[in-house]
Every structure is written in structure tokens, then in C-alpha cells.
Design a protein around this nucleic acid. Structure first.
Length: 272
DNA sequence: ACCCAGGATGGTG
DNA sequence: CACCATCATGGG
């Protein structure tokens, strides 16, 4: 029996197109099929009314947290300075974006692939990875392969999926995280200070500062992380020549970053 | 044909 | 430290 409920500050299409998740599909208008942490969920939205294809128990146990329902996005948007036209416009354009609480391994692999890449191709690569090494969990949907599923896969096989030069990064990461090593690596990260967690991520082959920040934000929900990619870099240069007011927004910088990223991506950039 | 993409690495000055 | 070539490959 499906779950129906009203949720404020949430728009499935904006989340799907906000570049944080690559395992959502859109079977129809206003409908999305979501794969996460080995689970499968179909979602439909009409205004603030949502229907989800899971039981109430599954919703409470997993999905409510996945959609970050514990965070007050209204308060975050209200904290945006009225004298900041760019952030104001960005939050209006992406009013329904939420920073999903995704599985850290899935995020790490996805953003390892994301470097110097475009979103369409990232999705294609991730879907190919799931189809090839995951297990079926829904119509035309496969689970995200775990480290043990990928360990030992020849680098050439990853390259055949279109990973390009990132294939060697994934092969190394899978080897390194197989056999329970992932949990050992992650355990100290949960309670670590932000800088320590970031430094640990930077030791991974193929993970630089930007990807580390994405893992922190999307995989560990460190909402203070502020990934600067090519879009954000250009936006900051154009609209914040004097520097972005990081100190003012400490505590939810990552969520504002998502508004800005989506805003820039949608080409609705504010006037010069 | 061309430039760009949710960049990182390894080498050099 | 800063800069820089290189990396695969498709999207637009």
C-alpha cells in the first residue's frame, strides 16, 4: 500500500535535475523511479502532495531520512540575505531542492566518475555500472554495485562503459574498499572533524578537493561542504567578485551551493 | 570541427 | 607554492 503525504519545500523534478543523484529515472511526467541503497521507490507529485510506492514502515525506516525531511528548508531560505539578488533568485528557482542523504559509497563512485564529465554521460555511466554489476530491484532498475561486486573487474571493462580515464580510479577504489575495508575506512569519518574527514578522502586515488567536498556533502551530509565545480566557479566570479559570504551562511553552505548550481545549470543566470 | 563537461594527477619552473 | 599538459569521451 502506497504512502501519501504532503511535504513542503520539495520538488522531485528539481531534485532530479540538481546534479546530486544519478540513479533517478523519469518514467512519466511528474513521476520518478528512485534507486538508492539497494531499494527501489516510485514517486509521484502534484503540488505538495506526494505518493510513494512503499509501506509506511519503509517510509519511516528509510525514505523519510533519504529525502532529508528532518531539515527545515524554509528556515534556510529565509536566512538568505535580502541584499543578495543572486542567492535570492537561485533559491526561488530551486525552491524544491533538498540535499538527499545518499549512501556514501554510491556517492563516492558517482562523483569519482563525474570529474571533467557532463551530467548526461555520468548518468549513462552509472546506469551502465548498475546494469552490469548490480542486481535487479525494479523495472529496468538495478541496485548500485557494492565494492565486492566491482573488485577484480578489469579496468578495460569499466572503460567499455564509457568511464574513460576514470576507469583506473574506480578499479583502484573498488579493490581498496573490498572485503569490508569500506566500513573500516568510513567508521572514523562519521565522528571526524570536517577537515580530518576531507583529508582522509583526499588520500583516495582520483579524489581531489572537489570530489571530496561532494562526498562530504551528498554522502556524509556535511552540509557545510561547498563543492566548487566549473559552474560554481564561473558563477562566483561573475556574481561574487568580492568573495562569497561564507561566514554568514556557515551551517548550511552546501544547501545554498545546490541552489546556485541548479540556478546556473538552468541558464537562468541573473543579469550582469 | 569545436569547445565544454559537478577535475585530478604528475611533472616542471 | 603556482602553473600546466594530459587524461577519454560524448554532449551540445
Amino acid at each position: 500500500m502506497p504512502v501519501s503525504l504532503r511535504i513542503p519545500h520539495m520538488d522531485l523534478a528539481q531534485i532530479a535535475e540538481s546534479g546530486q543523484c544519478f540513479t533517478w529515472r523519469a518514467p512519466g511526467p511528474g513521476r520518478y523511479a528512485v534507486a538508492a541503497s539497494g531499494r527501489y521507490l516510485e514517486c509521484a507529485q502534484a503540488g505538495d502532495a506526494f505518493t510513494f510506492s512503499c509501506t509506511r514502515g519503509e517510509w519511516e525506516a528509510f525514505w523519510a531520512d533519504y529525502f532529508d525531511l528532518g531539515t527545515d528548508y524554509g528556515a534556510i531560505k529565509a536566512a538568505i540575505g535580502p541584499g543578495d539578488p543572486c542567492l535570492t533568485a537561485a533559491a526561488r528557482a530551486g525552491w524544491g531542492i533538498r540535499v538527499l542523504r545518499q549512501d556514501v559509497w554510491e556517492v563516492a563512485v558517482s562523483f569519482l566518475i563525474s570529474q571533467n564529465n557532463n551530467i548526461t554521460r555520468i548518468k549513462r555511466s552509472v546506469e551502465g555500472l548498475c546494469a552490469a554489476y548490480g542486481r535487479p530491484i525494479g523495472p529496468d532498475t538495478w541496485s548500485f554495485p557494492r565494492p565486492d561486486d566491482l573488485a577484480g573487474v578489469p579496468e578495460a571493462d569499466f572503460q567499455a562503459l564509457g568511464l574513460g580515464y576514470r576507469a583506473k580510479y574506480l578499479a583502484a577504489l573498488a579493490q581498496q574498499m573490498a572485503d569490508g575495508a569500506l566500513e573500516e575506512f568510513l567508521a572514523p569519518l562519521a565522528g571526524a572533524k570536517p577537515e580530518e574527514a576531507r583529508r582522509a578522502l583526499l588520500t583516495l586515488y582520483g579524489v581531489g578537493g572537489k570530489v571530496a567536498d561532494c562526498i562530504l556533502l551528498f554522502g556524509l551530509h556535511r552540509v557545510d561542504a561547498f563543492p566548487v565545480d566549473t559552474h560554481i566557479r564561473q558563477l562566483l566570479a561573475r556574481h561574487y567578485p568580492g568573495g562569497f559570504p561564507y561566514d554568514r551562511y556557515r551551517g548550511f553552505l552546501g544547501i545554498l551551493q545546490q541552489y546556485l548550481f541548479y540556478y546556473d545549470l538552468k541558464g537562468s543566470a541573473c543579469a550582469p
